[in-house]
C-alpha cells in the first residue's frame, strides 16, 4: 500500500467524485447525444484514474488499460452510439418514465445508500486509503441501473449499462490495484461485443416496431 498523502491517491479520489458528478449529469440529460457525450467524458475520467493508478499503485500494466479505455470507451463506443442515434431516431430526446426532479432525488438517495453500505467495509479494512472511490463506484453502478429502468429508449439503456460497466471498472481498479491483464482485456472485449450485439438488436427492434421504445416490447410476451 502507498502513503496517504500521495498525489496519485488524492487525484484518484477526486476523479472518482468527478465520475459520480458525470453520472448525475446523465440523470439530468435531456438529449440523447448529450447523454453520450457525458458518457464519453466519464470514460475519460476513468482513463485518468487508470493512469494515476498505474503510476501511484505500482500497477504498471494499467497503462495499457488507459489506451484501451480511450480507444474503446472514449472514442469507439460513443462514436457508434452517435451513429445509431443519427440513423435510428427521429425524436432525439430521452423519454423518461420518471420526471427530472424525482430522478434527481432518487439518484441522491442512491448515493446516500452507496455510502451507507460501504461504511462498514471501509472500517473493516483500515489500510484502504480511498475515501470515496468504493462508494462512488457503487453509486455509479446503482444510478446506471436506475437510468436503465426509468428511460424508455433502447439507446438510453445501452448507455445505462455502459455506465454500470464504468462503475465496475472503477471499483476493480481501486480495490485490486489492477486486475490481471487477461481479465481487463476480457472485460473490455465483453463491453465491445455487448455493444455490437445491442446495436444489432436495436436495429431489429426498430425494424419490427418502427420505434426503439422498449416499452413496446411487451407485445412480444407469449
Amino acid at each position: 500500500m502507498l502513503e496517504n498523502s500521495s498525489i496519485g491517491v488524492y487525484a484518484i479520489d477526486r476523479l472518482a467524485l468527478g465520475m459520480l458528478g458525470a453520472v448525475i449529469i446523465m440523470v439530468l440529460c435531456n438529449r440523447l447525444a448529450a447523454l453520450v457525450y457525458v458518457y464519453a467524458f466519464q470514460s475519460l475520467l476513468l482513463a485518468a484514474i487508470a493512469f494515476f493508478a498505474s503510476s501511484g499503485l505500482h500497477a504498471h500494466h494499467l497503462i495499457w488499460m488507459v489506451y484501451l479505455i480511450i480507444i474503446v470507451k472514449v472514442l469507439g463506443i460513443p462514436y457508434m452510439l452517435l451513429r445509431l442515434i443519427d440513423t435510428l431516431t427521429i425524436k432525439r430526446e430521452v423519454e423518461p418514465y420518471v420526471k427530472w426532479p424525482i430522478s434527481l432525488l432518487a439518484a441522491s438517495g442512491l448515493v446516500i445508500l452507496a455510502y451507507y453500505i460501504q461504511r462498514d467495509i471501509l472500517e473493516l479494512h483500515e489500510g484502504v486509503v480511498f475515501n470515496h472511490c468504493l462508494s462512488t463506484s457503487l453509486a455509479v453502478i446503482l444510478i446506471g441501473l436506475f437510468l436503465m429502468i426509468t428511460r424508455k429508449k433502447a439507446i438510453t439503456q445501452m448507455v445505462g449499462l455502459l455506465t454500470m460497466e464504468n462503475g465496475v471498472f472503477l471499483g476493480a481498479i481501486v480495490l485490486t490495484s489492477g486486475m490481471p491483464m487477461v481479465i481487463e482485456l476480457g472485460m473490455s472485449f465483453d463491453v465491445l461485443v455487448g455493444i455490437l450485439i445491442m446495436g444489432v438488436f436495436t436495429f431489429r427492434i426498430k425494424e419490427t416496431f418502427a420505434s426503439i421504445d422498449t416499452s413496446k416490447l411487451n407485445s412480444l410476451r407469449g
Binding site: 418514465y97 441501473l145 436503465m148 429502468i149 426509468t150 424508455k152 439503456q157 422498449t214 416499452s215 416490447l217 411487451n218 407485445s219 412480444l220 410476451r221
Partner: peptide, 9 residues
C-alpha cells in the same frame, strides 16, 4: 412475467 423490460430491470 409482464413483458416489460423496465419491470424486469
Amino acid at each position: 412475467q409482464t413483458g416489460s423490460m423496465h419491470l424486469y430491470l
